[in-house]
Design a protein around this nucleic acid. Structure first.
Lengths: 131, 131
DNA sequence: TATGAATCCTGTAGTGGCTATAGAAACAAG
DNA sequence: CTTGTTTCTATAGCCACTACAGGATTCATA
């Protein structure tokens, strides 16, 4: 049993964001103390950690909701969850490849600039000629 | 010389987004035909492709502007250019490192989950128990 | 016990980066 | 000349927060 402030500190998620998640239907409506304040239990720390991790992995809230729904019905196939993760993985790998190209180009530029060569910055070409 | 519609098709950036970029100061104010319509040249295709790539890599528009400055202001001193590139490089490397962690986790998750049931699906487990 | 700080509540508005729509003007093809 | 497409500006909506405002309640300390 804890307050929203305690949950916020425990989970590292802003109070306003927790309330927003409830509004958005990602978290269930919190049960209330007689004074009207939200009361949370230990399982909410887990849920919030789950949401935070999923968001950091690039899942949209709509996908997070889907994943949470799956979690609450463990008799269902995990195919959907796996597909969500796979799609995410593909996007991440594509991003990663292009970032490496950009990093190498920036490194080249920093080296060139240090050698006194101005005006041959080719970031645009580096990023434009990728597929 | 082309219209905003042609530029949109060539670059894969929505017309509205092109106008938004102009409003936001990411693209220079387009020169206008006598009838008031925007006129673009070939160099704008490159600029837009660059912006799209940079955005997909997770750069904010403010950083995109900085990156564009590297290319479009060759009168910048060596020092300034080098500093700008270095700052972007640091941001890229940080992003890269986090993406690698993320990719490895997603790979592990997808591998661990082969059409079983949610009960033994590690996608959710992995997300819940990530340190 | 008083009082001031902290916490919580709801509701609303602002942010960034688009995206969609309305209504008007211009243009292109038949 | 009509019809359909393109463009224009201006405005509103979307997502996922984030930041108030203004009020109620609770907690810590004098």
């Amino acid at each position: 049993m804890m307050s929203i402030g305690t949950l916020s500190k425990k989970s590292g998620v802003h109070i306003e964001t927790i309330r927003y998640y409830e509004r958005a239907g990602v978290l269930p409506k919190a049960r209330r103390a007689p004074n009207g304040r939200r009361v949370y239990g230990h399982e909410d720390t887990g849920r919030l950690a789950f949401i935070r991790q999923a968001r950091e992995l690039g899942f949209e809230l709509i996908s997070v909701r889907a994943l949470l729904a799956l979690q609450e019905r463990p008799e269902l196939s995990c195919k959907a969850a796996s597909q969500l993760a796979s799609a995410q993985l593909a996007a991440v790998e594509s991003r990663l490849n292009r970032l490496i190209v950009l990093r190498d180009e920036l490194r080249r530029m920093v080296r060139a600039c240090k050698n006194g060569r101005v005006g041959d910055c080719r970031v645009i070409e580096a990023l434009t000629n990728m597929h």
